[in-house]
């Protein structure tokens, strides 16, 4: 250890060789409904994780806990060493590291596509408008929406809106992206354009956590697949093995239904 090259520690004592995100025994209930019943998982830098499972199994809650949109009851969640389940949590510091894309896109309807991408860096990070605009235009091109900069969300298709939402999130330069069933509200043709965008991100080395029902996509891009049921991770593994050879009965039953 003493001979090893010095690794840079961040303010939380985290070094890049440790998991970027670490969940240990996370519990969450909504009233009497136990949504997460002891979930643990690690995500390393550059990894693409897919979480699959039946509706109501706690998938969405799981990733919404990671950026503190949902407070957890017990357990620990660390993002680059920062403890999320901390009453004094610096939410801004956390959320600029963690980007999130939602099922319903949730763009700001009163701002154009380009303004949607520019808003948070300017308002939240107080960055220079000119520089942000250059970056935002590049991001619009990256998600293949050149020419749509001045369109309002209501004038865009679902797939286009979702790609603006991805660009909006990327504008904050996050270290990890959370995708919460981002294609569930789209029609089959537009699903593809969004998945292409996500795949490109994954190939560039962006750490991604996806809650998805797109099994084909999960098999293709994921480094690791997690199957959740009733608030627990039932089974997980590399996609080739997970899909070809599920071991748990519940996984088999679920895959039998959806594949």
């Amino acid at each position: 250890m003493a001979a090893a090259a010095p690794v840079t520690q961040n303010e939380f004592g985290w070094t890049p060789d440790q998991p970027l995100i670490r969940l240990v025994d996370v519990h969450k209930s909504f009233g009497s409904l136990q949504v997460l019943r002891g979930v643990s998982l690690d995500v390393r830098k550059g990894e693409v994780i897919c979480i699959i499972g039946p509706s109501g199994s706690g998938k969405s809650t799981l990733i919404r806990c990671i950026n503190a949109l949902v407070p957890i009851d017990s357990g620990t969640i660390r993002v680059e060493g920062q403890e999320v389940n901390d009453p004094d949590l610096d939410k801004l510091a956390l959320r600029r590291k963690v980007g999130m894309v939602f099922q319903q896109y949730n763009l700001f309807p009163h701002r154009t596509a380009l303004q949607n991408v520019m808003m948070a860096p300017i308002n939240v990070l107080k960055q220079n408008r000119k520089e942000v605009e250059v970056r935002a235009r590049a991001l619009m091109a990256k998600v293949r929406l050149q020419g749509k900069e001045d369109a309002y969300p209501g004038q865009l298709s679902g797939g286009q809106q979702q790609r603006v939402a991805i660009a909006r999130s990327l504008a904050m330069r996050p270290d990890v992206m959370l995708f919460d069933e981002v294609t569930a509200a789209l029609d089959p043709e537009t699903v593809k354009e969004v998945l292409v965008t996500i795949r490109e991100l994954a190939e560039e080395g962006m750490t991604c956590i996806l809650v998805t029902h797109e099994m084909g996509f999960a098999r293709e891009v994921a480094d690791h697949v997690y199957f959740t049921d009733k608030g627990l991770i039932v089974e997980h593994g590399p996609p080739a093995e997970f899909f070809a050879n599920p071991k748990d009965e519940r996984t088999k039953a679920f895959l039998g239904q959806v594949l």
Partner: peptide, 30 residues
């Protein structure tokens, strides 16, 4: 204003005041 819209702003790091000023109020006013 849909809760999901303000949630998206929170996820981008907006404070409660920021959400109100940049998202909630402009939409609510309309």
């Amino acid at each position: 204003v849909p809760r999901t819209t303000t949630e998206a702003a929170e996820a981008l790091g907006y404070t409660r005041m920021g959400v109100y000023r940049h998202v909630l109020l402009p939409l609510a006013l309309r």
